[in-house]
Amino acid sequence: MNYAYYPGCSTQGASTDYEKSTRAVCAALGMNLVELPEWNCCGSTPAHAVDTELSAALCVRNLDIAARQESETLLTPCPSCLSNLKHAAKRMQNPEARARVNELLDNPAASEFPAVTSVMQGMAAHLDAKEIASRTRKSLSALTFAPYYGCLMSRPAEIMKFGDPENPTLMESLLTACSATVLDFPLKTACCGASYGIPERSMTARLSARILQLATDMKVDAIVVACPLCQMNLDLRQPQAEKAADTRFAMPVLYFTQALGLAFGFSPDTLGLEKLRVSADSLLRKLGTGAANAAGSR
């Protein structure tokens, strides 16, 4: 089945491993991702922080391209892109706002856009847990995960429509379908510090440290995430968090697609595990998967 696909800028830069593993897992599930032609950046946090209509215009250009594709659903792996696209689509329902956004565009936008949803929800809608389980080649039963959604995926609830905004459980259902042990992670929707890593490093370090500390205390093998920015803050910036908390975590932070990919039998290379700053070797050893050398080291 074909799905219109909006990868988002992160997956082309710092998070190519998310992109690789998303494509691999979707292919395994029979989901054909058709990338939007000439898509542009959604504007991320800076655009909506500066001006709501600027943010909406950047998003609507993409939605407008999507409206001309055949797919009824537009998937995106990034919660920040998802949030911006959904907010923009909602804003366009207001005629006054629509007129002001259209002013910024080359041509007025289409009157209706396809529904935008996360890759994670797309997977769950495409196949149920039983069918996903049937595709598992390698049980993850040796692994214990802390699922971490970040703050944007489920909030605001009425726009994101991602289940209980305090306690989303979709990732858990996918991972448990692969026999992993998934703990009830209380900070699953806490904020990691988002885009403040650059202008206000101490904030991101402190917030990420809190999440890493709890996961460490709960003795999980890895934190599993769905957001490129969360992954960067928890993984690449982990030393900064360690410094802020005056401790050492050595906590692997995987994308949920990487975890699913391992269950589906993909090689660490296919899933881009070597991109992780904190090596996933410990996980691969527990799984008895070879090619541990392919994964990163620190």
Binding site: P186, L187, L214, T216, D217, M218, K219
Partner: peptide, 8 residues
Amino acid sequence: SAIYPDGL
């Protein structure tokens, strides 16, 4: 705002 177990 919230209550959660600290894992310890």
